[in-house]
């Protein structure tokens, strides 16, 4: 049985109320998570040709934390890209762990998985260029998804060596932290997107549809159904060497695929096969 004196001697941890921490409605959070789950799938599908072992990037979840609480991967091969959302005060960064960057570059160069101790080694110039290009490409797809979701345009993109010197956030600024991971390899193949905490509220500002309390799932599906999506009509594709592409000049002529095996694509994912007939006055696309 406790005495009053005994209770008084127990130190209860005092948790500071965080005024800067954003208030998020459940519907906003679910929609925001759904967007990033779709981004993980888009990344995996777009990199399927070189993701070793048929693995996939998976969205682990959203939480909030101060900038100072973010664990920075200090390995020299880690990739950090800073960005902002145009016309908003929202800043963000995307950080690939060194092991993930090594994994992706190894896949691109068909060199297999890097040994454990190589994640701490510095990239060669070519590997570094491939890592930056891969990171930019992933950020490009993130930007497309944000634009489609009405979150705004990803802008002011720049690479960063040391996050602490980026002057992007105050140490105690509350951030939305979106964590992604490739599991099952025994390595820290992780990716983090951090955004100003107000990003989730921005989602609500751009969504005119009222989400009712009664049927949240149906309401979210309804919102997603009406989201605009950019569709591309692709005549065909072919493999070309980088050197060949660098030699392209204005006036050069290329024989294109005939359009018999064309397709419609959204975010580089083939969504419908099609046949395209080119005429002098335009083109006709028949969905197959």
């Amino acid at each position: 049985m406790s005495t009053t004196a005994a209770i008084a001697s127990v130190e209860t941890p005092i948790r500071k109320y965080e005024l800067g921490r954003p208030i998020i409605r459940r519907e906003q959070r679910l929609t925001f998570e759904a967007i990033h789950r779709a981004i993980a799938q888009t990344w995996s599908e777009s990199m399927a040709d070189f993701l070793q072992g048929n693995v996939k990037l998976q969205f682990e979840g959203l939480d909030f934390g101060a900038f100072s609480s973010v664990a920075v991967d200090e390995s020299p091969s880690a990739q950090i890209v800073l960005f902002s959302i145009a016309s908003t005060p929202i800043n963000g960064f995307m950080m690939l762990s060194g092991a993930l960057a090594q994994f992706l570059v190894g896949g691109r160069l068909a060199m297999g998985s890097a040994p454990e101790d190589q994640s701490a080694t510095r990239f060669t110039r070519i590997e570094g260029a491939i890592a930056r290009e891969t990171t930019r490409s992933m950020l490009g797809r993130l930007g497309e998804a944000y634009a489609v979701a009405g979150l705004g345009a990803v802008a002011n993109i720049r690479e960063c060596d040391d996050l602490a010197d980026s002057f992007l956030f105050e140490p105690d600024e509350s951030l939305a932290l979106l964590r992604f991971r490739i599991s099952g390899t025994g390595k820290d193949l992780s990716l983090l997107i951090a955004l100003s905490g107000s990003i989730v509220a921005a989602l609500a500002e751009h969504q005119p549809t009222v989400v009712t309390d009664g049927d949240t799932r149906a309401a979210i599906i309804d919102v997603v159904r009406r989201l605009p999506i950019e569709v591309e009509v692709v005549l065909g594709s072919w493999r070309a060497s980088i050197a060949e592409l660098m030699r392209l000049q204005v006036g050069d002529r290329i024989v294109l695929p005939d359009g018999e095996d064309a397709w419609l694509a959204a975010r580089s994912i083939r969504i419908r096969p099609a046949s395209i007939e080119i005429r002098a006055s335009g083109a006709t696309i028949d969905i197959l």
Binding site: R226, L227, I229, G236, S237, S241, L245, L264, T284, I287
Partner: peptide, 30 residues
């Protein structure tokens, strides 16, 4: 080093539900 080149003839924004409803024999004009 090689890469895949796509020849994109057109692009447009369409509501997701319209894209989902595209079916064989639908025709698009460019």
């Amino acid at each position: 080093f090689t890469t895949v080149v796509d020849a994109v003839l057109a692009r447009a924004k369409m509501p997701l539900e319209v894209v989902a409803a595209l079916s064989p024999n639908d025709r698009l004009e460019v």
